[in-house]
Structure formats: C-alpha cells, structure tokens
Nucleic acid binder design. Structure first.
Length: 482
RNA sequence: GGCGCCGUGGCGGAGCGGCUACGCAGCGGAUUGCAAAUCCGUGUACUCCGGUUCGAAUCCGGACGGCGCCUCCA
C-alpha cells in the first residue's frame, strides 16, 4: 500500500507525492525559548520524528527543519522582569530544549535555525511584500494586508468578514498611529521601543513579527514550495494561516501538506496556565518537560506520545502514565537482548527475517499501520501481538520474533539504548546497596534452613520500609517500592 | 456567537461497511515454602434518535455531551 497522509488543508487522507523524487522537506514550528519547556513542546518533535523516521524507512531522504524562536515579546518581558540579558535567557532555554530532544532520541531533525540568524533575510522578505503591495507601513511597524490575500482562512476554515469584532485587535488598531487597516492584519516588523533589542531596517530599528520567521526560515532551508509543514493544532490560526498568506504573496505554493498534532490533556481536559491547580508547584511540575522526563524516563514519555495517533490528544495524567509505563516494561523485557544496540535494522532486513505465519501477519500489519497516516498506536498494538505470540512459540523460534519486535520499534524511535535503565530504581547509594546485600544474604541462609518465619519477617519489614524483595531463580533482588 | 476535532467496554486507546485491535486494571490458572515479579487464559463496548444498505461502531441527517482555536499558548 502506498504511503498516505492526512492534510489539514484538504481534511482528508491522500497518497503522499513528494515534490522531488525520493526527497521530503518538512518544517515543524519550534518553541519560543523564554521559560522551561512544557510537555507540549515535546509532542511535535517526538511525533514528527516518528514520521520522519518512517519517510526514511520508505526510502526518502528527509530534510527536517525545526526552528527556535529566540526573539519575541515574551522574551523581552522576561528580560525586563528579571534584569537578565535576553540572550542569556534564550541560550539557556534553547539548550534545555535541545537537551530534551537528545534524551528522547529525536534524531531526525536536520536543521534548528534560530530566528536571530535570519533577520536580514526577513527584512528583505518584508521589503518584497511591501514592493508587491501586500504589506504596508503603519505607525508602529509594517503590517501584512490580508484584504489582498485570495483564500485567506482556507486552512482553519475562517472567513475574513467574520473576524472584525475582535476587541483586542481593535484596541491595537487604535493604538497604532497611522492605523492598521483590518483587524486580521498582522505585524511583519515591529519598531523597537527604547531599550528593546533591535535590528536595522528601512522602516527603522525593530524586530520581526512572529509569523514572518517561519516563512523566511522555511524558504531558506526548504524553498518557496515544500512538502510538509507540521505543528500543533493551536497554531492553525492565526500562525499557520498567516504563514500561508506570506508565503503565497512572496511567490511559491508554500507547504503542500499540513499536518497538525493534537494537544496534551490532563484527565480529559486542557490545563491552562490560569487553572487554579497550577498554583500548586507539585501539580505544575507535572507539565514541565524536564520534570516529567526525569520522573518517568524518556522512554515512557516517548511511548506515551506514540501510543495513540498524532491527531488525537494525549492524556498526561499520572494514572495514564503509570499504565503506559507498565505496558512498555513488557515490551522492554521482550527486546532486552537488543535494547542497547547502537545500530538499527533496515525494514528490508526485518522483512527478510523468517517468521511463523501469525507473526508475519503482525509484522505486515505494523508496516501497513505506519503507511496509513503514521498510525503509531495501531503499529504498537502489533508489537504487543508479537510479544504475546512469544509465549506460545518453541524456544528456537523466539529470538527471531524478539529481533523483529525490536527492529520494528526502532524504526519509529522506540527501544533506544539506555531506555530500560532510564528510571532510577535501586542502588544509587552504595552504602545501602552493601547493607541490602548483607540482609539478603542472611535471609537466603534462613530460607536454606527452611526458616520461613525469619525469611518472611525480613521481607515484611523491608516492605514496610519501602523496599520490595523478589525471589528469583538466581537468588533474591530488591528495589524501591513504586 | 464563529471555525474545527471528537463521543468505543472500569480506565486509556485503535477502528475509514461484514473479520479477536491493543494496553492498564479486574478475574482464573501456571510458577513460588508463601509472596512479589513473570507467563498463560478471560468478560463487559461502540451517547441517543432517524436514514442509506443484504449488512453500520464505521456512511448521511438531527439531538445531546466533551475538547480545542478565535488573546504572538506547543
């Protein structure tokens, strides 16, 4: 079956046809780096990393661009509030973001352009829009003229004539000396107030507007027309709509396919910054990317995100994360032997492995699920199908199945080196490890003497202390209670 | 109010007209000195009302409900 994907523009699934044979150009809107990464920031990278991996599996050479917005009003506000230079703020949070992507094994992104590296290109792009009569100078900057745009609103299904009653926009129109002409017109260039970071331009020192950066950076990395533009649902309007307007006005068809991932939820609903529960730091920490990754491990976070479909919301409530972590543990046991390998298997190599019929069907269904709009959730279900089969197969057929589970998982970013050890479980205190070793030794001799009363007493008391003892074939092990 | 997405078993979550999704939890079994862990087995489902069809969770219409965007939120 041909690879097909759902485009927001057409609202339907269509076979994927690349602009250039054997190549895919993807652009994913990245974070504005003014504070700690939110778990939502991880969604796009992880989800579209799986997409990019699958394109590569299907033989495409992928250029995957993910920008960093390192100049923005929020950054300036933060600098003003803390007194810290804005460059220091953006550098810190850029590093945090890139560090998280690394931990999550998001490896397919080829370019991380920074907004501040493209300001001259943005200026000339805006000059071009002005020259074409698609933008105009107002009192506080340069604005895009949406009234000249044919088909404005086609991505989000909005109509220009219905967007006139926006109070905030009207205020801004009144505030801009020289006047903004239409409420939907948006800033391409913002003139700097005293003390604000700024770059030179024909209209005066200032900084680029939000939407212009993506249009310019995609142009310079992927071209005026490119295959796929991705991002979160919430960016459809106004951000993506305005990118299209700019891109088309500048010349080119802009993105041919638009892919939007759904958003993070918590017990079925979005938790906004103004949610009263957010005043509890422990609650708020559940949404901070680095805290979530530290608490559950990158493997669980990645698995949670890929466990459904990218166009559906993902629930980050603790109950859900716990259930998913247990499920992933089961797969980890299946692939334990290969988990630490640093090189992947190609799809061809995986398909060449001889399997029993039923296992072979699961393998084929995995591939079909990924070909069908990157349905990672359905694909992972096939992995469980294979894992389940393992218990029924003779021992000599099991290694092949294990290798296939691992190989297929790797193709979408699962089962990376370090995944199994990612959640700190036991002995990070050497002294405790030594004491436990002694305790288990004593208990082992009690058991050898069939003194189960003493043996159970040790186990019970340890359990009360938060330490769980498990008796296995090769002696007892221990870990902290979950 | 406008635009969009969605309503599946206790929970999470696939499904794109006929065929067990899957996972977690629960229950039963194997294993164990007893446990834990592990493995095997297993049930309950498609918000409601119309319609199309031989046949609908799946298509169409309506009702009700949830979510998101419309404020430079990923």
């Amino acid at each position: 079956m041909a690879l097909q994907l759902h485009s927001t523009l057409t609202r339907r699934k269509l076979p994927f046809a690349p602009l250039a044979d054997g190549k895919v150009g993807m652009y994913l809107c990245g974070p504005t780096v003014y504070s700690d990464c939110h778990i939502g920031h991880l969604m796009g990278p992880v989800l579209f990393d799986a997409v990019a991996r699958w394109f590569a599996v299907r033989g495409f050479q992928v250029r995957f661009v993910n920008n960093i917005t390192d100049i923005d009003d929020k950054i300036i506000d933060k600098a003003n509030a803390t007194g810290e230079p804005w460059q220091a703020i953006t550098e810190r949070y850029t590093n945090q973001y890139l560090e998280l992507l690394k931990k999550l094994h998001v490896t397919t992104i080829t370019d991380h352009p920074r907004c501040t590296e493209y300001v001259p290109q943005m200026v000339s792009y805006i000059e071009d829009l002005v020259a074409r009569g698609r933008a105009y100078v107002a009192g506080d900057g340069v604005y895009y003229d949406v009234s000249r745009q044919v088909g404005y609103g086609k991505l989000s299904g909005r109509r220009l004539d219905e967007m006139t009653a926006d109070a905030g926009k009207l205020d801004r129109m009144a505030g801009a000396a020289g006047g903004v002409r239409h409420p939907a017109d948006f800033a391409l260039w913002k003139l700097a107030k005293p003390g604000e970071p700024s770059w030179p331009s024909p209209w005066g020192d200032g900084r680029p507007g939000w939407h212009i950066e993506c249009s310019v950076m995609s142009l310079h990395t992927l071209g005026a027309t490119f295959d796929i533009h991705a991002g979160g649902e919430e960016l459809k309007f106004p951000h993506h709509e305005n990118e299209i307007a700019q891109g088309e006005a500048h010349g080119g068809d802009y993105a041919r396919h638009w892919m939007h991932n759904n958003l993070v939820q918590y017990q079925g609903a979005k938790v906004s910054k103004s949610d009263p529960r957010m005043s509890d730091p422990a609650f708020a920490l559940q949404f901070q990317a680095k805290a979530v990754v530290a608490a559950h491990g990158p493997a669980v976070v990645r698995f949670l995100l890929l466990n459904g479909h990218y166009r559906r919301p993902v629930d980050f409530s603790p109950e859900n994360i716990g259930a998913v972590a247990t499920a992933l543990g089961r797969l980890h046991r299946v692939v334990a032997a290969d988990l630490e390998k640093t090189s992947d298997l190609s799809l061809e190599a995986i398909l060449a492995i001889l399997l029993p019929d039923e296992a072979s069907r699961h393998r084929a269904d995995f591939v079909a699920a990924m070909d069908d709009d990157f349905n990672t959730g359905a694909a992972i279900a096939e992995l469980f199908g294979l894992a389940h089969l393992l218990g029924k197969l003779p021992a000599d057929q099991q290694p092949a199945v294990r290798t296939v589970v691992w190989g297929l998982g790797r193709l979408i970013g699962l089962f990376q080196p370090g995944d199994a050890a990612a959640v700190p479980a036991a002995a990070d205190d050497d002294r405790l490890a030594k004491v436990m070793s002694l305790v288990l030794e004593l208990r082992a001799s009690a058991r050898a003497n069939r003194d189960f009363a003493a043996s159970d007493r040790i186990r019970d008391r340890l359990k009360a202390a938060g330490i769980v003892v498990k008796d296995g074939k090769d002696g007892a092990t221990w870990e902290f209670a979950p």
